[in-house]
Design a protein around this nucleic acid. Sequence first.
DNA 1: GAGATTAACGGAACTTCCTCCACTTACTGT
DNA 2: ACAGTAAGTGGAGGAAGTTCCGTTAATCTC
Lengths: 211, 211
Amino acid sequence: MASEPVELPVNGLVGLPVVGLPPTERADAARNRRKILDAAAHIVATAGVDGLSMEEVAQRAGVGIGTVYRRFGDRAGLAYALLDERERELQTAFLSGPPPLGPGADPVARIKAFLHALHDRVEAQPDLLVVAEMNSTHARYTGGAYAVHHTHLVTLLNQAKPGCDAHYLADALLAPLAASTITYQRQRGMSPTRIKSGLDELLDGITTRTT
Amino acid sequence: MASEPVELPVNGLVGLPVVGLPPTERADAARNRRKILDAAAHIVATAGVDGLSMEEVAQRAGVGIGTVYRRFGDRAGLAYALLDERERELQTAFLSGPPPLGPGADPVARIKAFLHALHDRVEAQPDLLVVAEMNSTHARYTGGAYAVHHTHLVTLLNQAKPGCDAHYLADALLAPLAASTITYQRQRGMSPTRIKSGLDELLDGITTRTT
DNA sequence: GAGATTAACGGAACTTCCTCCACTTACTGT
DNA sequence: ACAGTAAGTGGAGGAAGTTCCGTTAATCTC
């Protein structure tokens, strides 16, 4: 179990801007980060997520195992880093992209679009996400991305339904989008379309004025 | 990873009645099951869930490690078995106990009571539940209990709001009750009361007729 | 440029989960 | 009783994640 700050990816981070850490990364560190990520990506592409062992990654990257851990904290952290590119695209899209995902559309439509986008992301890389979310420290929540998504939802929910417990509802809306949940539903034969409809139904309930 | 049927606890099961397996358990097997469960319970009480290593359990129970695995499949399975007693109480309560949890109350009230009960269960044994839910095979869903809870919710949801996608909504309502989710929320300072209110809010949305 | 500072490196060692399989034992039918 | 057999047992061994710490080298200071 990683103990302290552990140091998150410094270049383009999944979550919030890192504070308090040295702004620059030593050259060799940056180089190794790249080598490790490339190696990891190659392994995932080749052998699937199951083949992503830390030893294997280190060997292929030509670094020691300790270096992999120093850079990424643990296996979940490495998985998160591999998801980083897509995650950043997603964040850009809902923070400043075109509606309905981005600003401009009405809140309910934006929430729907956002939940659908999250679903599509799980659909695109389910295995990596499962690994990223599943470790001993609730990586899903500590990963940084969750906080961003949560904050985004809180904002929109407050617009859509002032007075609601936006913080709780944001958690509740994100919960069924956990990679393991969706993976399970897909295995049960539930289609993406149906899952999205279900999310819509859930959301409509929340945002419909009952006054 | 456990491959096939793996054999679940035969005496009082968490989930559905087992089919196709020999109805009786050999005497020595039953004896060992008891010894293992006692040892495991003792360890959890003494050293917490973190101290629950399979080796330790086997040693304390005076059996080989292989026996522990044969009985319980994996660590998550052992954790589930430790939760079994409470789980059975819960199932009895909502299947045949007094309202509002049991039959008699209106569906929405029953759902609320059920969700609250699930929350209380997490509150009572968060660590064990986290272990039980978190392994490589999505133990939460394969454990048997989930299926029972899901079925129960589907029934009630169909009564409360005919025409809804009860199967999806049941998943969606159970998702925020995952032990890891609630643990995280509690760490963030969210009180049980607030979590329950939030669940009520979520549910009210779903079940309010918009027609 | 030399020396000091300190982040970064590497990989052996440790831990724990889980599998495998040769051996043993409880139950069954005759 | 007793042999046959399916179920159960145990622990060595393999695999993978993670930690630790002595060594190396990038960066900074003068």
